[in-house]
Structure formats: structure tokens, C-alpha cells
Simulated scan of single mutants.
Amino acid sequence: MPAETETGVRDRLTAHRDRFDARFADYFDTVAHQLSPLGSFAPEALALVRDMSLRGGKRLRVALLYEAARLVTSEAVAGLEEAALSVELLQTHGLIHDDIVDDSPVRRGAPSVYYAYRERFADRPQTALGLAVLAGDLAAFLSVRVLLTAPVPGELRQAMAAVQATVGADTVVGQFLDLERDFGPLPDRALLDLVSEYKSARYSVLAPLRLGLLAAGADPAAHEGELARYATLVGIGGQMCDDYLDLFGDADATGRAAGSDLRAGRRSYAVCAVLAAATGPERELVESALADPGCPAGTVEQVRGLAGRHGVDARMRADIRRTAEEAAAIAAGWRPRWRAEAVDFFERLPLWAARRAR
């Protein structure tokens, strides 16, 4: 991808993020005012949700939402800001519950909501767990409520809320699939893709596409097949990139030590590819490291080395590139019916994202 094209995608993402973050902070101020008379636990939960929500993130979902509306019109679109709040609140819900399921102490460079409660209620762990679950639930229900109070006709509000409720349920199913993946026989590629589709692609890509088109007055159902295929490919490609970087990435660039999926026992795309390629003693080495939180860095390096000898890293990079190119080709096919500027964004985005796996 030419450097100017990569810069263009990054600049569009940054512009959407900066605009949205100010609106997100204002939204939390409004909800905090509503909750302030209602004891101390609910306002404290909202403060933790707010802190984690505003602490980081690329706001890719927000960008996809706004660019989906721009496929139809360059004019301001009513209800789009509420839809953006909704997709990010649903993301916050998922992160809070992810950290509970994974027992993760840190999220975006600070204590996770779960661990913030564990510190606050060190002598009452069940209370800490319950409050963390409720904080995640609060984010989920706010995600639907903000759509149901959007300044748009009632029929549109209902349609947008239905999108979010549906993908919220799909994401929970994805969490079940994600946990089940790590039990039983080594999962095949079809199962890995299914986990990526349900746990990520449907709410991170497909829902913003649907919401943006709906708000702009288009009918996403008329293009459901290609929208779903694009979203699934982008979601799979993004997950493969994450899994690749977890095992093969430069720790200085990623900000984390290699092999966290391996140590946690996650049968990621990368871990499954290494297990499938390894033979004899090599497989024993990988399995000895799998689900061992104390697995030393030297063992991870051995796993990385055998993966390189079998060409696992090169094959993953090629697969990520092919997935991105297929998604880009689908988006290019939108050019005859939708605005070229926004189509360009959707065509370039998968290729830009794939460049992380280098």
C-alpha cells in the first residue's frame, strides 16, 4: 500500500476518534448526573466504566459507523452520534466481561474494572466479582438505551436497537465458542473463523456498517450478504494479526512480551498453526508451554524458532494478506452504487490493518 494511502486511512481514523472522544466524555457527564442521587455504588460503577472507556482504543467501530453513513451521504446524519455511543458502550461491556472471564488485572495500561473492585473490596471477593459483572451489564444496557432515546423516528430507533441487541447476543455466543475452542481436539480453521466471526466481526464491523447505513436512510438488508462477508473477512484478518503479533511480534512494538496466548492456553490461529506443524518432540515442547503461566521466555523463543523453521510465520502473513485483499475486493465492488470517497476507505482499511503483521 502506498505511504500516502496508509496515511489517509490513519488520518481518517484519528479524526473520527478525536471528535467522538469529546462526545463520549459529555455523554458520561450526563449519565453521571442522572445517577448521582442513587447511592454510591452505581455512580462508582459508572466512573469505572467511563475511565476504561475513555482510556484508549482506536475507535475503529466509530470510524466504520461514520464512513458507512458517508457511503450514502456527505451531509450530517441524525442518530449517528447515538449509534457511535452505542457501539463503544457495547465494546466496553465486552472488555469488562472479558477481563472477568480471563482474570485479567490490566486493561489499556491501568487496572481492569474487575481488579479495581478486587482492590477496593479485598476482603469481599464475591462482592468485587458481582460489582464488576454489574458494571459490564450497565454498559450493555446503556448501549441499547442510548439508541432508544436517539432524536430519530421511532421506527429507525427500533431498527437500530434491534441491530445492537442481536449482535450483543451473538457476541456472548462468541465468548462461549472462544472458551470451548480451548477444550477437546485441536480446532480446525472453520472453528477458528467461526469464533472470530461471532466474538468480534459481527459487533465490531457488521453492526457499525448496518447502523451507519440505517441512519443514512439506506436498507442494509438489501446488501446483507456482501456486508456480512466483508465484516467476517475484516474480523478474521484482525484476529489473525493479533494472534500473529502475540507470538511473532516485536515486544518493543507491541508493548507486551511474546507468548501470552500460549501461556494462557488459548488455541489461537498462531498456536494452532504451530501445533499442526510441529512433530514429535517439537509438539511436546509446544504442549508443555500451553496453559503454563510460568512458561519462561526461553521456551517461548524455542516455540517461535520451530514455528519459523516450519514456515508458520510466513504462511500466516500470506494468509492475512490474502484475507485483506479479498475484503478489499468486496468493498471495491460497492463503487458503482455508493460514494467513491467512502468506498475508498473501506477498500483500503483491510490492507492498512494487515500491515501490522510484518
Rank of each mutant, 00 (worst) to 15 (best):
F183L: 13
E119K: 09
L206C: 12
H310E: 00
A276I: 00
A222G: 11
D21Y: 09
Y203H: 13
A47C: 08
P187H: 03
L134I: 12
G311Y: 04
A342C: 02
A270T: 03
L233H: 06
D219I: 08
R202Q: 12
L90Q: 09
Y27Q: 09
V146Y: 09
D18E: 15
V274W: 04
A251L: 08
G212P: 02
F41A: 15
D243M: 06
A162K: 08
L131P: 10
E4G: 07
H16F: 07
L349Q: 04
Y117W: 10
S36Q: 15
L306A: 02
E224Y: 07
K58M: 11
V113G: 04
A276P: 09
G154D: 12
C295Y: 03
G217L: 02
T299S: 09
F28A: 08
R157Y: 13
L262N: 03
L209S: 08
D242R: 05
S260T: 13
A332G: 05
I100H: 01
R283Y: 02
A329T: 13
R118G: 09
D261M: 10
A139P: 05
T323N: 08
A318L: 01
H33K: 10
A218V: 13
A122M: 01
T7S: 12
A47T: 14
P185V: 06
A276V: 00
S86N: 08
E82V: 00
